[in-house]
Design a protein around this nucleic acid. Structure first.
Lengths: 245, 245
DNA sequence: CCCATATACTGACTTTAAGTCATTTTTTGA
DNA sequence: TCAAAAAATGACTTAAAGTCAGTATATGGG
């Protein structure tokens, strides 16, 4: 009697399909204009049905966040399996985050939304909130692991506490990606007129800046320069102008 | 015939009063629950009047953001007048930001809101948006100035471009303050269970980490340790637990 | 194949909160 | 004192989230 299982599967599939459509809508019109009637129409279900699959609008957006965090995690975890030094892994994790933000702005928007609405009752009643938190913690653990690897292989200064260092790298890289994203996508954000910033260049400078602080002495002497120069990650630059820098 | 002037003054005063009340409401119930009817009631004006003073809800929230950015700016600009090295100024600017975020969470919340709604038509029609952008740019220019001072007095490595470095410091410090804020104020954010983070400790580690990258060689040799230890800024720690670190 | 039950779906309706505007009240200056 | 201008009001309109009584479809035994 696999009927209940089949139904469960079908329900999950439909949920995914609705999320897909909502995602497209965000990409087209922006998260601010996301409208449940429209989502229902696009997904070819009635409004009532839509609310059978998602508790409320916040739940739906969190569903998208969950997809985003799962995707991020897959990318991040993969880095650990590559043949890289710990320091290079840390770099690659950052680049992945950057790539993700520029290739999936709708996911990035959704995650920024989440940051603002985490504390509402609606968010707290969503199953997705916990799943997102889990994914975030898992991603963070990968970062810690990369740092530990770096401390063992001698590429990262082992006088730090790995957890503390991971939090700082997490926090600062989020800040950098966020600022770069804002500069690119938000009309009224420019910190400095005529200063074009592309995400990739900015991230490289960032890695160079903190590289000094996290590298081991031996690593600094051997290839500190190459650290910020040799890598050419497959991140496409999204910026149009770049007068400065 | 100073009547129009007096009226203008009164109008501005009333606007400020309404903002004050709205701010209190955010502090009490959170930005998510901010409700225009309630703002009107608290400010002892009718709803219609409220809309004479503010175009719409976004305008009102941007009004609060504007207050916040003005306050931030005053703090930041003052640092330039103090008898500090450029590097110490940079540190102090960061600490000010941190202090601001922990002492005025309602302002911090409003500014985070702004980040999400900058691109809506409502925000674009608000006069406050431009004023906020101006303040942000002014704050940024102070940061650049501090860096230039540091390059001149020899405390900051002068191989960087001051603008680029300022953007990186801006971006990373925002990331750090934001992450620390989330850890403290958001239930479902913990990157690591049982890891208590207080904003001040985290910010000090951050400054230590990037200190290596921005300090001049001479500064590193003379007092690099003291850089992250001697300062005891008057930031009250808001965190309750702190098991780790 | 038919029917009773369960499950899934529907869209008209309710609710909530932002935003408007015709009317009233207050202020101004002759 | 009063007419015109300015300011203030709150009942109303609108938009969009969220609900639910009723309808349709699927299931499984007889």
């Amino acid at each position: 009697m696999g009927i209940t299982e089949r139904k469960e599967r079908e329900k999950e599939l439909k949920r995914a399909m609705i999320l897909e459509e909502a995602q497209k809508l965000i990409l087209e019109k922006g998260l601010d204009c996301l409208n449940m009637d429209e989502v229902a129409e696009r997904a070819e279900v009635s409004k009532g049905s839509l609310y059978l699959y998602f508790n409320n609008k916040t739940d739906l957006v969190l569903g998208i966040c969950h997809k985003a965090s799962a995707m991020m995690n897959a990318m991040t975890t993969k880095v650990l399996t590559e043949n890289l030094s710990g320091l290079e892994m840390v770099y690659q994790i950052g680049i992945n985050y950057l790539t993700f933000a520029s290739e999936h702005p709708e996911f990035f928007r959704a995650m920024r939304f989440l940051e603002n609405y985490k504390d509402t009752d609606q968010a707290k009643n969503s199953n997705y909130l916990g799943l997102c938190a889990q994914n975030r913690q898992e991603g963070f653990r990968v970062m810690v692991r990369a740092i530990q690897i770096g401390m063992q292989d001698g590429s990262i200064n082992n006088t730090y506490d790995p957890n503390e260092l991971a939090i700082l790298l997490w926090a600062t890289s989020h800040g950098v990606v966020n600022t770069a994203y804002m500069h690119q996508n938000t009309e009224h954000f420019k910190l400095l007129d005529h200063l074009g910033i592309d995400m990739e260049t900015m991230f490289k400078s960032y890695m160079k800046l903190i590289g000094c602080g996290i590298q081991s002495e031996s690593n600094k002497n051997s290839d500190s320069q190459s650290f910020s120069e040799t890598h050419s990650p497959n991140t496409r630059s999204v910026l149009t102008e770049n007068n400065d820098a």
